[in-house]
Design a protein around this nucleic acid. Sequence first.
DNA 1: GATTTTCGAGAAAATGTTTACTCGAATCCT
DNA 2: AGGATTCGAGTAAACATTTTCTCGAAAATC
Lengths: 343, 343
Amino acid sequence: MDIRTVAERANVSVATVSRTINRVPTVNAKMAKRVWDAIRELNYFPNTQARALVSGRSGVFGLIVSEITNPFFPELIQGFEDVAVENGYEILVSSTNYDPKRWELCIRRMLERKVEGVAVMTFGIEEPLLEQLAERNVPLVFIDSGPDRSQVSLLKVDYHHGIRQGVQHLAALGHRNIGFISGPSRLRSAHARLEAFTQSLRECGIPPQPEWMIEGDHTLEGGIRATEQLLAGNRLPTAVMCSNDMTAIGVLHKAYRAGLRVPADLSVIGFDDVQMARVMIPPLTSIQMSRVDLAHAAVTALRSHVENTAPQREYSIDTRLVVRESTGYPPGAMQDLRPADGA
Amino acid sequence: MDIRTVAERANVSVATVSRTINRVPTVNAKMAKRVWDAIRELNYFPNTQARALVSGRSGVFGLIVSEITNPFFPELIQGFEDVAVENGYEILVSSTNYDPKRWELCIRRMLERKVEGVAVMTFGIEEPLLEQLAERNVPLVFIDSGPDRSQVSLLKVDYHHGIRQGVQHLAALGHRNIGFISGPSRLRSAHARLEAFTQSLRECGIPPQPEWMIEGDHTLEGGIRATEQLLAGNRLPTAVMCSNDMTAIGVLHKAYRAGLRVPADLSVIGFDDVQMARVMIPPLTSIQMSRVDLAHAAVTALRSHVENTAPQREYSIDTRLVVRESTGYPPGAMQDLRPADGA
DNA sequence: GATTTTCGAGAAAATGTTTACTCGAATCCT
DNA sequence: AGGATTCGAGTAAACATTTTCTCGAAAATC
């Protein structure tokens, strides 16, 4: 069944059917009704590929994420899907798993399916591979930083705000010895978070301690390893901030293994505020970065490029501290804030 | 740049280029080389929409999941993506969030993009909506149960094996009072799990206690609520099995809130064995159902339908117990298995 | 060596849309 | 009222492929 069938049934030309479907205003209301009736009766819907072929527009946005199994990303994907579909776009999700081979496949898939724009929501970026997209003038959106070029937008995350809130929170509780487990150092965003941390530390008059700045990799295992490293040192910080929640969960786990009580012996702050943070034991204090905002901004940016309505180059995403129970007074402060029961 | 450009460059006809790309065996090796060279030099790749349009094959498989934010699903999606892409298919993922409105949108998206098959990996199924897919002869795969029709395959999960292992494990530890938090009762799979549980219980000579069979909804909140219900009763079981890991994590959380130690006061077993189970506090004993197996079987089933190579109607997926530390002797057994330190 | 068969490459139709162009009718202006 | 203009619907070209058919040349048969 195709548009011709509908045309015959409605006694109009195929062009009229097409115009009706695409809501071209010149079509007579009476005919439009005939067409819509025919469409409903036949349960017809247009063939996307034919449409895409002739119009040169696939109606698909690509979304590249680091790894779909990190709970941060599903929440992002969900948001992206929702707002994309709402605006009539389909999405093509692909995860790189930090593997260059997969990166290549990813890009290739995007290219083959002729996506109209790609949101690169991974934190590590393989610049040379993205060239292929840029070459073909595919609009792109990045988090934090990307090539400065037309057709490219940036989602600037205000790491500083949330991280400063976190540091101040810890400082207010009396912590002076605060560690940080960063993401992979080659990642700009990981660097930015670390930078925000040390700067916030200085603002609070606390000198950063290099021995407590550990490089993680944004995974559970990375968090566990980093904690081991911390435990192996001669002095332990009383609090540790993490570059993401998975890392923080790894820390929680290793602390439990090592018999360290959180927050009595060690306060922990995560970053992202994934759903799971709420039910960790203890519930994880974390810095929230809204996946919905991120997704919304990404789709908006992409849309504004393809439908070129004054494309904005930068969107800003803010972060804020969510205090739960993985942070408390440092050991020796002679107090324990942990409530007996809560929500 | 299109196939014509390649044809000119290679000095052959477009038909030959097409045949070369599609590896039709009749094309002369020498010409094929010329074509491949041209393709490489031009960095050409075929237009998927045109291809799909004429061949009537989109090369896309749909994947419908319940909710992408339940960690079970991302792992499944990842597996599905991997094996689909490996076989030259693209995937279109959509999540229903248990919302009939979204179900409808889901199906519509699948239909519009002309998917060649759909894996319905959600546990609740909206039969009437799926009619639309069946009508158009789209091959389908379901978990557990679905309409008995040609073009439909089933992934039969052997719940019994894993659940029996779980019950036996608990019984061996000395538990006689075992609760179960099921999924929504209208879900066949939830029912199947509950069934497997009560049967296993009987096999161990333990009479099932209706007051300890609580209906959850496969979410964190459901697990929390179910535990509250359990706590409100006059007798507490010494162990509780859950229909999925999210529920179990909710139980862990609520137990922590209520000051119940796991496993000293209450043993907990999950189902699915999501990645996160390993790092729960304490690490969660769970019944594993391999996402990779599931994904693999789903794609295999779909492929065998579209490439109709003797489509198999049923695939069986097994489950097995993974013992961690959320299970131990029941209170009063005067022993504590919890190790001082571990991995 | 002539006729038939096989083989492989090219020409062209077909796929389901959109959209520029065409063209008749209706409206408008003088 | 008659010509110009506007309006809206239909015709057909275009999109990038695949695939059927065609057809010439080479191979095989007698």
